[in-house]
Design a protein around this nucleic acid. Structure first.
Lengths: 146, 146
DNA sequence: TTATGTGCAAAGAGTTTGCCAGCTA
DNA sequence: TAGCTGGCAAACTCTTTGCACATAA
């Protein structure tokens, strides 16, 4: 069966190769925000006849087709997630690198308001919270030796 | 006279070379958020005997000494500004690349609140608004052909 | 004087691209 | 078949680093 992204690709009339199909599948099944190398690893695990260059070309193709969203969480490489239409921001667990999505209406309203007050029209924005898991069991153990 | 940053350097006991002094001066006088290459250009304009490697080394030194703050506005290179202690976020004019600083108390409160609700403790965050100057003269020209 | 800083060029990481063979439509 | 696609390696951008020389303290 076609993966969700492969379906979108065929709908959009993109020529589908085995490589693209595999990468589409990997991305459709990724609930995290993998970087290119991770997509490459997952793709080659399914079909070793995929090069890193193809992964780069394909994620860019998908991004330009609005199939993927590209993020930069400050670690020097791009991360990707399937474009879902619904806007959300990200909280990055700096202990594990895990990315949690969230949406907060008040924040969205404030973003617009701030831009407007400064005399601008908001085109895009980025809100990332870098955080550590709250220590619910024991409050005293938050020595920051990092 | 010593630049503001040079003063901080001597206070911290950093060995001051001509290069560092010049870079400190450039950064003290920069009200924008220059990247390394721009700092390099401004520094070599004052003293051509400065290499790009030294600029990289010096901004890193200053950053580690909490003299500078490093930012990544998504264009693939680091931007720097003098650390001022007061937190602020950034609005980037995508037409000109200009960076406007702003502070909004409500946003700050919400950031903390969101992290807490998700079970995290906020360590750091990044809010960037990418925007275009509002068309005050003519409101009807906002067709989105993107 | 001696540890530290600097310039230069090479090396690294992430990403893009030229070229020719391979495959899709 | 015609033209887009993919693999490989070279190229590119931003940044770091090894080495020998220069310099601050």
């Amino acid at each position: 069966m076609q993966s969700r992204i492969e379906q979108i690709c065929t709908d959009k009339g993109l020529k589908m190769t085995d490589q693209r199909r595999t990468i589409a599948q990997v991305l459709s099944e990724s609930i995290d925000h993998p970087d290119v190398d991770l997509v490459y690893q997952r793709a080659t695990a399914l079909d070793p006849r995929i090069s890193i260059a193809t992964v780069y070309r394909t994620v860019r193709l998908f991004e330009e087709a609005n199939i993927l969203e590209k993020h930069d969480f400050g670690d020097g490489r791009a991360r990707y997630e399937e474009a879902s239409g619904d806007h959300h921001d990200h909280l990055i667990n700096i202990k594990t690198g895990e990315v949690i999505e969230f949406y907060n209406r008040e924040i969205e309203v404030l973003k617009e308001k701030i831009a407007k007050e400064l005399g601008y029209e908001l085109v895009d924005h980025r809100l990332e919270l870098y955080a550590t898991p709250a220590t619910t069991e024991k409050q005293g153990d938050d020595s920051d030796d990092g």
